[in-house]
């Protein structure tokens, strides 16, 4: 075994331990802020696993999207509404725990079965290294165009929904027609935080 192989093995072991222990921590820790930070660590470790698989573009995208955007937004939300709250004890907690344990172990068994029955070709196809980025682009714009476009439409819908929910200074009447606008979608229309000086 040469140096690069053993380094790879050690890295794999460390990353896997971080992923497993980190995700356990995310679920089991009492402090939700710790959970959120640990989630970031888990995402980073997963990016490290991608790097070990020679998929550097996917690794960087993982860091950018999951750590830089998703995890930061989670932290943001937690810190903006971080108030101590006494939660009511949930009835029949034990039965719920048993049920979810059954569902989770069923999922695990399914995954293990998939893992054992799939004929993996070892060693896998040769790594294409730096050309991976171009290859991903080609796939996204040829045979995976439909899923790609569907995902972008989904994101657009989520974005428009977020804007509609977040807008506070809503127009009472339509600018073009002068009809009153249906505001049933909007939870509440607060007064704008900053007074618009140009209109007064």
């Amino acid at each position: 075994m040469n140096i690069s192989n053993s380094t790879e093995l050690i890295c794999f072991a460390i990353l896997s331990i971080v992923v497993i222990l980190g995700s356990l921590g995310v679920i089991l820790l009492r402090n939700i802020v710790y959970s959120a930070f640990l989630l970031g660590g888990v995402f980073m470790a997963v990016a490290g696993l991608y790097l070990l698989l020679n998929a550097s573009f996917v690794a960087a995208a993982q860091v950018l999207v999951y750590v830089g955007a998703v995890n930061v937004l989670i932290l943001f939300a937690i810190m903006l509404v971080n108030k101590k709250e006494e939660l009511k004890p949930i009835k029949s907690l034990q039965i719920r725990r048993i049920l979810s344990a059954i569902v989770c172990s069923g999922l695990l068994l399914l995954l293990i079965r998939v893992d054992l029955t799939t004929p993996w070709d070892i060693p896998g196809p040769a790594a294409i290294g730096e050309q991976a980025t171009e290859r991903i682009g080609e796939h996204l714009f040829t045979d995976y165009l439909l899923p790609f476009e569907l995902a972008s439409v989904l994101l657009l819908m989520a974005m428009i929904g977020a804007i509609v929910l977040a807008r506070r200074d809503v127009l009472v009447s339509d600018v073009g027609t002068g009809d009153s606008v249906d505001q049933s979608l909007i939870e509440k229309s607060n007064t704008p935080l900053l007074i618009d000086e140009s209109s007064s």
């Binding site: 802020v33 930070f37 970031g40 980073m44 550097s56 573009f57 960087a60 995208a61 860091v63 950018l64 750590v67 830089g68 955007a69 995890n71 930061v72 932290l75 943001f76 810190m79 290294g129 730096e130 991976a132 980025t133």
Partner: peptide
């Protein structure tokens, strides 16, 4: 000379706010 070069920088610089949030909290 990493192939993903400048993208790596963009990805890495997105980690920084986590540290800032952490120290702020």
């Amino acid at each position: 000379n990493v192939g993903i070069g400048i993208f790596l920088w963009i990805a890495l610089s997105s980690i920084q706010p986590i540290g800032l949030l952490m120290s702020g909290y």
